[in-house]
Design a protein around this nucleic acid. Structure first.
Lengths: 106, 106
DNA sequence: TTGTGCTTTCGCAAAATTGCGAATAGAGTT
DNA sequence: AACTCTATTCGCAATTTTGCGAAAGCACAA
């Protein structure tokens, strides 16, 4: 419906190569690591803005301070949508998710 | 630093009550369910736009069609940041996450 | 009808995330 | 010094998400 239904297999191969070959994990180490740092920072910022301690925020979302601490650790790579939503909800916010096109080099 | 460091415990209690009491899971059933539906729809849309089948997209991110199908199911509640990123990356997009203030009734 | 391609559902094992207590560290106060 | 509050780190069990094959459904064409 969208495009040529057939011979799409080739295009998929090309896309796959473009995505995984060459830079198998480099992109994850750069762009994704950066994203994780940003999330950690945002959580910390949100909590600080509300004047809450980790223990207090933890209680608010039904968990402990060590969990909050982990979330605010810039090196933490396990961020989940579920947790972000819990944090957001406790702060009277919501998590907005958008897919935004990335510019391929120049 | 942000506000009165002491006697904040009371405020936390108030916030906790406001968040969990009264509507313990109702908010999750409404706002969160809606959010999940939207994510499912966005994934489907993204894939359709690229003219890919579930099998093709699955291969692209290193999984199978059944997984993609699950992601596009409006009733699916297990969406994760990790998976959204894989989808996005395969489509040459990135996942943008924002905390946005929610309006408290009137 | 058969066949083909795509999607959907189901079940369970594997992997990832969360829960949580305990211990440690740091800063500030008395 | 001791005391208090906060933050951080560690380890492991519990829960959640993912992987993946198999089977069935659906639409369309031959």
């Amino acid at each position: 419906m969208a495009q040529k239904p057939k011979s799409a297999t080739d295009a998929v191969e090309i896309l796959r190569r473009r995505t995984y070959d060459g830079k198998p994990e480099r992109l994850k180490s750069l762009e994704e690591t950066r994203a994780n740092e940003e999330i950690a920072r945002k959580i910390h910022e949100l909590r600080a803005q509300a004047g809450l301690t980790q223990t207090q925020l933890g209680k608010l979302i039904g968990t402990t301070a060590s969990v909050i601490c982990r979330l605010e650790d810039a090196d933490y790579e396990g961020h989940s949508l579920a947790m972000l939503r819990r944090i957001a909800a406790a702060m009277n916010q919501r998590v907005e998710i958008r897919f935004v096109p990335i510019r391929r080099s120049a």
